[in-house]
Design a protein around this nucleic acid. Structure first.
Lengths: 209, 209
DNA sequence: CCTACCGATCGGTAGG
DNA sequence: CCTACCGATCGGTAGG
């Protein structure tokens, strides 16, 4: 139950950075949100960028702490992927502000801070890559020409949830997670239509590179 | 072949707004890129926000001009969806800067400008909704509990391409488009595994809301 | 935690 | 298209 001044500043900054972006949020905006003057914030924090770094790194660590045990469990690859998808959606919907900052505002970190965050982002996509490899090797997933495209596609879907999710929307986080898992794992096509398309695949191949 | 001063300013602003974001790009940055002083830009443009609006609206109009004829053609729904996916990827990879600005920086437009852009964004998601409805009605697509989740999932994947695509990457825009279409239309699961999962669907249903 | 302030930078303009 | 400048706002600090 965080309620110290530093925590309240961090909470307000998380919300504001997520809503308006880091460069568009001034220290005066954050001060207004917590009832302090801009200058007074510096009794509790060292710099604006240090606040950003802490939000981003906390969010990324939380995400990896959720993702890695799921990916490294010994369940079948498709079960692990489904769990990763639903857990991802639940984390992101539970912490929209933190997720938005961790996903987009890290670009405004400088130098070594930014490099450390980029390294942790790689840990996450590497985990998905292993998961995909496992599934292909075991015959659970279809072989794909380029795994990185599939990974980027999956993460594109999952990360975008932070941008449109509203707790007032029709669907619960669980329902969103299940439906996106169905989309990414099962696809849209009905089984009958899928067979028809598969046999005609070369008809729609690109003309050439 | 645009090469007037106003066009060169627009090109530079498109690249800079896409790379750093609108609030982090100063008129001096744009001036540097085209070899003018910040104040001199105002002989060719009326304001920084007017430049943003023109980039966003041009990009969105270009996108709708591509999407709507595809969605409204009389091909089967899955063919139309595949065409929309590949065309989306080709447009976004062909104009990364414009796409990034149109997709993310419109939030910094104010008042009526922003409202007009939001309306046009709705036109695009409405087109996808019709397409999905057509496919479900004709039995081409599986019925889904909430169409908007599927649409958001598809657009999340497609729009994220602008953030990671590089012309120096392994895959061509055509290959990316085909693979993402396979992912979104066909899914990852092999046919055998798909049947196994489908019969056990209720096992993994959420505990409740 | 406030008062009072710093130098830097912002979008934009007048006048030529 | 430049010179010269405007008021506003920025992140941050000294001193209490």
């Amino acid at each position: 139950m965080p309620s110290g001044s530093a925590d309240r500043i961090l909470e307000a900054a998380t919300r504001l950075f997520g809503e308006r972006g880091y460069p568009s949020t001034s220290m005066r905006d954050i001060g207004d949100a917590v009832g302090l003057l801009a200058g007074s914030l510096y009794s509790h924090i060292s710099s604006k960028e240090a606040v950003l770094l802490q939000i981003v790194e906390t969010g990324l660590d939380r995400y990896l702490g959720m993702l890695l045990p799921i990916v490294e469990s010994d369940a079948p690859a498709d079960v692990r992927l489904r769990r990763a998808v639903t857990a991802h959606v639940e984390l992101v919907t539970n912490r929209v502000g933190e997720s938005l900052v961790a996903l987009h505002q890290w670009k405004f970190l400088s130098g070594e801070h930014r490099e450390r965050i980029e390294a942790k982002r790689h840990v996450a996509s590497d985990a998905f890559r292993r998961l995909l490899d496992d599934g292909i090797e075991s015959g659970t997933f279809n072989a794909v020409p380029d795994r990185d495209i599939v990974i980027a596609g999956i993460l594109g879907t999952l990360n975008s949830v932070a941008e449109w999710y509203s707790p007032k929307g029709r669907a619960t986080p669980q329902e969103i997670g299940e439906q996106l898992a169905d989309l990414l794992l099962g696809g849209l096509l009905t089984p009958a239509r899928r067979r028809a398309r598969t046999t005609k695949r070369t008809d729609v191949a690109p003309a050439g590179r």
